[in-house]
Design a protein around this nucleic acid. Sequence first.
RNA 1: GGAGAGGUAGCGAAGCGGCCGUAACGCGCCCGACUCGAAAUCGGGUUACCGGUUAGUCCCGGUACGUGGGUUCGAAUCCCACCCUCUCCGCCA
Length: 426
Amino acid sequence: MIDLKLAQKQSDILARALADRHSDIDVEEFFALDKRRRALLAEVEEMKSRRNAASGQVAALKREGGDIAPMQAELGVLSERIKTLDAETERAKSDVEAWLMRVPNIPDDTAPKGRDETENVEARRWGELRNFDFLPAEHGDIGTRLGGLDFERASRLSGSRFVCFRGWAARLERALVNFFLDQHAANGYVEINPPFIVNRAAMTGTGQLPKFEDDLFALRGRDQFLIPTAEVPLTNLYAGEVLEEESLPYACCAATPCFRAEAGAAGKDTRGIIRMHQFTKVEMVRFAHPDDSFNQLEIMCGHACRLLELLELPHRVISLCTGDMGFSSAKTYDVEVWLPAQKIYREISSCSNCTDFQARRANIRFKPRGGKAVFLHTLNGSGLPTGRAIAAILENGQQKDGGVRLPKVLIPYMNGLEFIEARQQP
RNA sequence: GGAGAGGUAGCGAAGCGGCCGUAACGCGCCCGACUCGAAAUCGGGUUACCGGUUAGUCCCGGUACGUGGGUUCGAAUCCCACCCUCUCCGCCA
């Protein structure tokens, strides 16, 4: 949520931000709603002030044994009017609130301006693209042929967009999780194992709700949801709290399953394991001082890229333009890994600085030395999802004979296994 | 799932229809006195948010006792629902 005061007093900034995002939200609508709210508030507060004063007089009168009946009758009428007006004020207040909740975060000045993904800006590239002397296969085919990926049985079990990892592939996923977590631990992230089911307040805190309820799996009969990313439990872990300034920057990470309904993605990425209803991801979350958060974004994005370097996977970093950024983000880097079969760079990590947008919703603050508590800045980034990492490893490491060479850094995590042999049985 | 207890300032806790929410009392924290300095002691201070106003963190008003409703002229206090915590029982990895 953006700052109410910013909307009131610096509406030019807000209007420009909405224009940059190519949003159709109208700032004029806010002024009308907020004006009405303030007018009603002033009126009802004045009436309450009268009631409070009169109430004291009733108490005094009663103590002295006087007749309070006439005042009672008069105040009864006033109280009725207050009740009505109060309800109306409450509605006006939630109208303003609802408007603010629909507004996306203000993009940072360093985020490139643009309408959609075609206007994103490449920041840097890493790695040599391998020359294949054969036609590289798609990861879904490789994984299926080698017995590691079982789409058929998984869909029989659960439906489309589910996969079952088997044998070496299951082991590879576990290896990646451990490798990622070990790297993060070395970089100072606290490892967390959070709940995978969270309530509505948590989903609202990070911005999934109220706008994107269709994208979530909801539990029947309960106001709880399966997490679409560990960003939700990790960021909301400190909801409502005031942290010490010394504890910033704070960094934590978690490996969790992620559940996404993928509504509106019908027919998109139907081959392979790029877009599943359930996947495993290691997520990085950082809490930062407002003066330091964009620096922290560079650091965190660097951590994501470093993982790909260690996995010997060519990739590039894209700075998302204002029209393509997520709802809660002020600046986002997407890291894209090279998939040689389709000959495209494919998103494997998204690192965002959400500034105080989530902190305000989730009420996460820190106390500067001798000052009042203020909202801190939250950041999150994938580091990394195992499914897309496996896809990249299979496609980039595939051999002419149909086997796959694994990245060196994973060998200890694979119990010494260097190759997945073409004829290997899982 | 059943029974009981509870949720009030940073923490502990009192209040159980108006004289108590700028919230008793204790701890903590801040300032001061004493001291070479410190401890101990003594004195004073210490909630947040919203609206109006302003040069202003001053002032005026409002709101908040887990959350949401209700009763009442008036609710922390009475009633209802829900959430959470603790204890015991049941069940269970």
